[in-house]
Design a protein around this nucleic acid. Structure first.
Lengths: 142, 142
DNA sequence: TTGGAGTTGAGAATTATTCTCGATGGCTCG
DNA sequence: CGAGCCATCGAGAATAATTCTCAACTCCAA
């Protein structure tokens, strides 16, 4: 409901596409949405925002720190609302279910590793792939 | 020099493109090569292997466990010889330099996290991004 | 050496994303 | 409140990475 202020604070002009895209993320059933996903959800609700614009807006919102971009399996990028607290992902190879977690020990070690190589750490990406409880059970049956 | 046996052991027919692609990896100056990279190196040495074939062979060699695929920044995939010992990457945002490392503590924690969610862990990818010593120094000057 | 299954190469097709450009719409100033 | 400028938009073309299609070719076992 406060999309307008958020955009203004980020130094972005308040336009219909930007407000609508944010709205989609705030009301979506899933946390992770691709450009195509967002595009379809908007098309489904009279708001006719072009695909190119969706891509543009996603990039801008990411740069403004309001969204976080992830490229899991490769192929396509997905975005999620950036709520401040960083986290990593656990992804099911069977059904695509995605869980989020943070592990202080891992974060600490990452910093240590980077330091030991003399690097100035800026970012990282980590994803664990496996089978969720349901899919693991299903696979065990065969 | 033992490309032939390696291929045979993997159950792959010994063909010129497969041998050549492996050779490229074994004699390259860099560990990480994209399909395009491999293609150009082959073109540069009379061996005329089509780009589509390079892609096919890379996929096959990966499935056979002889190469490992990584999709760092997204965009394009790179491959490297799979020498058994798993490792993660540290990538310089300035010059693209790539270092490799393994951290038992992180591996252990990853397993623990997956378990705590009831997942059957199969694989993971992790990359740390930052500035290498050289690039960090250059950036500090400004 | 010969035949067939597996493999190749060239180019077309696909997928994800970005660019181009004329039209449109926020927003600042008067 | 209205005018105009500049940022933004939409559509479709363009790009980039990768995969598909299919006729021609090559390994290799017999």
């Amino acid at each position: 409901m406060h999309e307008q202020e958020d955009l203004k604070n980020a130094g972005l002009k308040v336009t219909l596409p930007r407000v609508k895209v944010l709205e989609v993320f705030r009301t979506a059933d899933t946390r992770h949405l691709s450009a195509e996903d967002v595009y379809h959800r908007l098309a489904g609700q009279s708001a006719d925002v072009g695909l190119a614009t969706v891509y543009r807006v996603l990039t801008q919102l990411e740069e403004a720190g309001m969204l976080a971009r992830n490229t899991f399996n490769a192929g396509k990028a997905v975005y999620e609302l950036n709520e401040g607290r960083h986290h990593d992902h656990l992804i099911c190879l069977g059904c695509g279910r995605t869980d989020e977690f943070t592990d202080p020990t891992i974060e600490k070690r990452q910093k240590a590793v980077a330091e030991s190589f003399g690097y100035e750490l800026r970012d990282h990406q980590m994803a664990l792939y496996g089978y969720c409880p349901d899919c693991a059970a299903k696979r065990a049956e065969d």
